[in-house]
Amino acid sequence: MTVPSDIHPLLAVENLSCAVPGPAGAMRILTDVSFTLPHATALGIVGESGAGKSMLVKTIMDIAPSRAAVTGAVRLDGTALQSLDTRTRRTTLGRRVGMVFQNPMTSLNPFVRVGRQVEEASRKHLGLDRRAAREKAIALLRAVGIPDAAECYHGFPHQFSGGMKQRIMIATALACDPELLIADEATTALDATVQKDILDLLQTLQQRRRMSMILVTHNLGVVAGRTDEVIVMYGGRLVEHAPTERLFASPRHRYTAALLSAMPRIDQPAHTRLATIPGQPPSLAHPEPGCPFAPRCPAAIDACRAAMPPMTVSADGRHRFACHVPLDAGISGDASVRQPEAANV
């Protein structure tokens, strides 16, 4: 995706790869992932379990397992994070990027009052004194919809329901007024109405604060109405990246299409047979040559098994996909010109 040369995108990920040693040789958890995220934009990352979604955001946040071999570059507002020394890098990320993890039960310390946990980062990174940090923490608890925030400041995590704990986690992630908020399956464990409340909250905050946001989820419905762009991961690779409407209306990659048709939909009658994706996710230890989806793909041709499909970019530069036999662009699609993408995004 092209950006005007005078401004940098908030986040640029360039040829990011990550491998960890495994019993059967190195496991290639991420292979050559590249994308950019503009300011004030919401991005969804979807893909089946084990596709590498969490590892992608962990690698961006520099919290990949220490045994992992990471190559490629992550730029925040133009600055290559790898070029910074470890301390500056961690401080930069801690101050400018907030992260909400999947499980609030394990992410909050059960023995520390929640107010303290919310204000920790702002004291550390913004250098606020005790009083200012405390006022800020209470304001944040209020902003994420915790009633009686001043009293709750003194509460311990076990006194809050799952939905409220997740709100507290979000307050913690917002403590330093981040420019980017990353939520990894932040609502998966919650029931539907609480899930909606939390997603509404994230969306309101993103728009009000003009942050960018990355929503990692395996529920396509979650990203549908709430993100500007979506990335689809498969076997550690980025296989499709498009504006959200376009991805749902006319997916080009065969895996994206299979994923969309496996979803149960409320506009179908009872007992409608769901489409499934036969076969197993690809082996990361012994990747086959060619497209990782080829063994499960109904449209695979010999070329798919022989060579990894290159990234194709649509004429307007906004839709990218890596497939030898892409689906038609469809009515709302663009007359895409197949042109291999430039090596650097």
């Binding site: 919809g145 309101t204 549908a224």
Partner: peptide, 24 residues
């Protein structure tokens, strides 16, 4: 009705308006 409205629908055309979040 509230439960049904909370279903994440795979319809990006229906941009979900950001609400304020409900009560516990």
């Amino acid at each position: 009705r509230r439960l049904l409205d909370a279903i994440p629908v795979p319809d990006p055309a229906r941009r979900i308006p950001a609400g304020e979040g409900g009560a516990e």
